[in-house]
Amino acid sequence: MSKIKSVKGALASAIGVVALTLLLLPQSAVADIARGLTSVEFEFGGQVFSIRRGADGDVALPNRYSQATRTCPEHCIEPATAAPGVATLSELEVFTFMQQNVSTGSGLLVDARLPAEFSGGSIPGAISVPAATLVTNNPYREDLLLALGAKGALGQMDFSGAFDLLVFDDGPWSPTARQAVQLLLDAGYPAQKILYYRGGLQMWHIFGLTVSK
């Protein structure tokens, strides 16, 4: 009698465990970013950000990033380099930049789009520096450069203590980031402190990476 009891108990637990493992599988929709890399953590402005892939589950691409037909001259395909001397990064290098430069306070993620587009969602930890604010006839351009870490007066600015800027925009079909990079160079920003993330938010959304709201 007791033997049958214990056998039935063991059978019940076995069934329970099997049922649980079957229930567990659909829960983890989070995909790996790279082999063995599930999330990228970095710190900026006193906040910790965690970039994961597919964290939102089965969410469709926003309309803006699911258009396959865009016309030039407005949305031409951008070249691989924004300007001579400015390095172009890909996603994994962006993660390295986040962990090494942004977390230590020597780098910034710069979204070159207009504020309305920036508030619709951007890379976590990014700040909005619209390309239009870097034009030469903006009287606040000097103040922007000073806030980016330059010192001195316009014309003879010292950029040795300035931030490393990773400039991005909507994607390889948007000229805004390239324009921002060129305007920064025109203002005297050193090319080795500017980095260009060509993929932009288009690739960010395609990979399903975390987007800030």
Binding site: L114, S128, P130, T133, N138, Y140, R141, L144, A147
Partner: peptide, 10 residues
């Protein structure tokens, strides 16, 4: 836009 950006940078 410039003020917003300066705000964020500060």
């Amino acid at each position: 836009m410039s003020w917003q950006t300066l705000n964020a940078l500060n």
